[in-house]
Design a protein around this nucleic acid. Structure first.
Length: 309
DNA sequence: AACCACACCAACCGCGGCGCA
DNA sequence: CTGCGCCGCGGTTGGTGTGGT
């Protein structure tokens, strides 16, 4: 019932979301919140555009999203609100906790449209006049101001920064600042950092502990347009990664690369956590919410003795 | 069983608003 | 004032499910 997965010319995935992608996005947002949709996918290790991530989160992954099974009350409310407000789905959605504008819009098109059309023959003609988008938007804002928003309030916005990764004490600086601060980081320092992370990953007894680095380099290549050589191996050791960096002079890791490595390492840790807790060889991602997970996460990024500056 | 038409809905797309430099 | 980037909204699409023939 959804569009089949595809990859556009920029390497951005489209179409149906896989469970792994859902887990990555959910885990990332639960950990760091929403700070910039455009950049978030890179840091979450997703080959998706920001818009797609936003939509997936808002309409499907966000906590408390209700799915299907509209009650009679909800149906009546949608019907009445639509009569009052027209196609202002986002405003209508604020009156129905757990329902998204997209879902309400779909529900109206599939269930209530005919009913409305039946009544429309008796409505005054000005009910049918189309408002300009500007008019619609202004009205929406005024109405929205009257409605209390609880769902997204109070979520702490924390973006992962390299300094966070290195110190294990998250701060609130954004990745833009990060890229400015560390864009000149020498390659050797990157290697030190990767080696440090990699060594820890290896110690966790997972066969694919450095899967993250493989993903990172693929992403990095596509961004830099230097993908003449495909990623030649699946990293099994940090020395492979370092060797590969060293062989390819066209690759000069920047902070974006570091950020990807960082986020992917996070995902690797999630794999490891699950493997540890459940004793499974290929368990998939788990949600980083348990105290044990949090503890493991902080341990895994206790890199206070490394400085890239 | 095979085919067809329609229902359904997740995801995409384009546009406008807003904030900031 | 202007241009740019980001976000959110509403319209639309694409593909699967389902019921009828």
């Amino acid at each position: 019932m959804v569009r089949s997965p595809s990859i556009d010319k920029n390497g951005i995935r489209k179409g149906e979301w896989s469970k792994e992608e859902d887990d990555k996005l959910r885990a990332y947002i639960n950990k760091y919140g929403i700070w910039n949709w455009r950049q978030l996918p890179q840091f979450a290790g997703l080959s998706r555009c920001g818009k797609s991530c936003r939509l997936r989160w808002k309409n499907y992954l966000q906590p408390n999203v209700k799915r299907g099974n509209y009650t009679k009350d909800e149906e009546e409310l949608i019907f009445n609100l639509h009569n009052q407000l027209g196609k202002k789905w986002s405003v209508i959605a604020t009156k129905l906790p757990g329902r998204t504008d997209n879902e309400i819009k779909n529900f109206w098109h599939t269930h209530l449209k005919k009913r409305t059309e039946g009544l429309n023959s008796t409505l005054p003609s000005n009910e049918k006049k189309k408002k300009s988008r500007r008019q619609t938007s202004q009205i929406s804002k005024q109405e929205i101001d009257e409605i209390s928003f609880e769902s997204d309030k109070g979520r702490e916005i924390k973006s992962p920064t390299l300094s966070e990764g290195l110190t294990g004490s998250p701060n609130e600086s954004c990745c833009t600042e990060l890229s400015q601060s560390y864009s000149d980081a020498p390659l050797t320092d990157l290697f030190s950092w990767v080696q440090k992370n990699g060594a820890r990953a290896k110690s966790c007894e997972t066969s694919d502990g450095l899967l993250s680095q493989e993903l990172n380099i693929e992403d990095y290549e596509s961004e830099e347009g230097s993908a003449s050589n495909e990623m030649p191996f699946r990293c099994s050791d940090v020395s492979d990664l370092m060797a590969w960096f060293g062989e390819d002079n066209s690759v000069t890791p920047s902070i974006e690369g570091l950020g990807d490595i960082w986020s992917q390492s996070f995902e690797t840790d999630i794999y490891m956590i699950n493997a540890h807790e459940q004793g499974l060889s290929d368990p998939g991602l788990v949600h980083p919410s348990s105290p044990a997970t949090e503890e493991f996460f902080l341990w895994s990024y206790d890199l206070s003795d490394v400085c890239i500056r």
